[in-house]
Amino acid sequence: MAFLFPTELFEALDYLVLILLIGYTLGSALLAVSVKSIYHAVLWLIFSLLGVAMMFLFYAESSFLLVVQIIVYAGGITVLMLFAISLSGKEAMFEKSKGWKLMDWRLNLAGGFILFSIAVYIITQVSSTFWSITEEELSTRPGTVVNEAGNIVSFDEAEMIQRLASELFTVHGGTVILLGLLLLATMLGSVYLVKKEVEDL
């Protein structure tokens, strides 16, 4: 079917998918911090996390990160949050709205100005600093699949997962062990925090 349509159409569709994905992710994130019910906020958080998972798949070329994001974030942490809301009673389900007035308006203005300056600085630094690698350099690396015209088609998934595994357990092996210890401490700590007080012990 590809020969029936001009390539410009496919490029325009690429941009359309990008814009839809960004709108989906940012819109869900905005709703997650603004809806009144905390239950609904967690549900919107799931959609935002799924949008980030799609970004990992499409634009970071990593299906492994997509799977990890869906299992750990969208499947694990959000269910944990839903259980915490269920266990902490009815008043936890809705947020008491006390309005936007948090502090003096001069402090609000100063904080907004600082945030705006940081945003402008980051956006002006983007173009020159990070993208020092050209597509020609990228296409000569191992793991990149190139067609006859020299354009990058895709990245070899199996090779990337293989490289991720080998790097995770050689270069970053100490970090993995530390993470294991951290998760063990987390498990013991959360059990200690939520256990019922037993008088006999």
């Binding site: 974030y73 995770l168 970090t175």
Partner: peptide
């Protein structure tokens, strides 16, 4: 090698899971 950032994401996801549990 394309993957150092992905390792950072994996570590960050594990840290976020620990943080949410605590």
């Amino acid at each position: 090698s394309f993957v150092t950032g992905h390792v950072a994401v994996l570590i960050s996801i594990a840290l976020a899971a620990a943080e949410a549990a605590i």
